[in-house]
Design a protein around this nucleic acid. Structure first.
Lengths: 201, 201
DNA sequence: ATTTATTTGAAATGAACGTTTCAAAGATAT
DNA sequence: ATATCTTTGAAACGTTCATTTCAAATAAAT
């Protein structure tokens, strides 16, 4: 179906957009937003400066693309983890252990990219703050749903509401990810997870 | 008592060093290390560029001075809180509420400066990483001592060792401070604190 | 008052920053 | 092959960066 006012097709993007974003994400995750220079991104992606600006706008909008890619990556990882879970309570446990694995696999863990972004940029940039608020809202809803189903199945107690437990887990998850930056001892991390979860049982 | 080889005394620093550091700390806490420029520090302290370099070395060493000042400030705050505590378990609770107050008093909370520094710089700069490791060690020892005394007084259960609970509280504290950046609802924050602590009782 | 040693202010340093420019290269449809 | 429109590469843009320089101001001891 050709449109009459569209005469010719231009040269098309030759690079793999998702791959470029994933390369940029590595740098941003490792160094943070402000410590990452445009030169770092040129080096990491192999793209030319002008191609980056052409395809991604400015440094900040590329960063937001990377945040979204990082978010999606962990949403997929999470989905896969949920498939292996015996029940919602077990799903929450597996979730913590998934993060633990990532922490231990990176020799120099840099924590959660989204948590780092919150620490670095929340309440400073409007778009970033919106992203973070939406991410928080979605995470809380996801956890609340999980807790609620766990309570229905009697694997999680009803001492507190699903909403309250979701907020507690959200906070605990951030603390766990922060702690993992300097604590690389698996037994200690396991201990934290167990203690976090024992209040739900 | 004059020393024979010390002939004359030089002009002395005219500014209040602690005040300058506290002004610089405000900026570093608000913007983070990388987003803070030397010009920001000149503006905030009222000192001349060369005076800053003369008295504090480079940007990084001034930052470390600020981290230490921030640490000391909270150590003093903590000591005062401990005086009001009925028992060690209550002391831990008051500690969380102290952080909650700080979070709610800052309209745009920027979290814990030390946690932010970990997020931004851990495993990148050697001196910073040393500072963070020492801060972690001291915090863990402090919490462990508190938990141990709470257990002796039967206000905290002995399901887990004081060391394990200390690590759990350390992790929870960081998560709580991160959460407070975007959650400014006091009831929700109170809920998190209660849930964190109920596992110890 | 003079000497001594330091702080101070203003300007300058060179490097790095994010972003723009623009001619050349290239891919598609005619 | 030609026309069309985008991507690409290299260079340059003006700004801002952390840091240095150095003469002038200053305070204490002689």
């Amino acid at each position: 179906m050709k449109r009459s006012f569209q005469i010719n097709m231009p040269k098309v993007e030759t690079f793999d957009r998702d791959f470029v974003v994933s390369q940029a994400t590595e740098v941003f995750h490792d160094k943070g937003y402000n410590a990452t220079s445009m030169q770092d991104l040129v080096d990491a992606t192999g793209l030319n400066r002008s191609s980056i600006y052409n395809s991604f706008g400015c440094k900040l909008s590329l960063f937001i693309d990377c945040l979204e890619a990082y978010q999606n990556k962990y949403q997929k990882k999470t989905s896969n983890v949920l498939l292996d879970a015996k029940n919602p309570a077990n799903a929450i446990e597996l979730l913590f252990h998934m993060y633990k694995s990532d922490m231990l696999n990176d020799k120099n863990d840099r924590g959660c990219m989204i948590t780092n972004c919150k620490s670095e940029m929340a309440n400073h940039d409007k778009k970033i703050t919106s992203f973070l608020n939406l991410n928080q809202k979605n995470t809380l809803e996801f956890l609340e749903d999980l807790v609620e189903r766990g309570q229905q199945e009697k694997h999680i107690n009803t001492n507190k509401s699903a909403k309250e437990y979701a907020m507690y887990l959200f906070s605990s998850l951030q603390g766990f990810r922060m702690t993992g930056i300097l604590v690389q001892n698996e037994k200690q991390l396991d201990g934290i997870i167990k203690t976090i979860l024992q209040t739900l049982i």
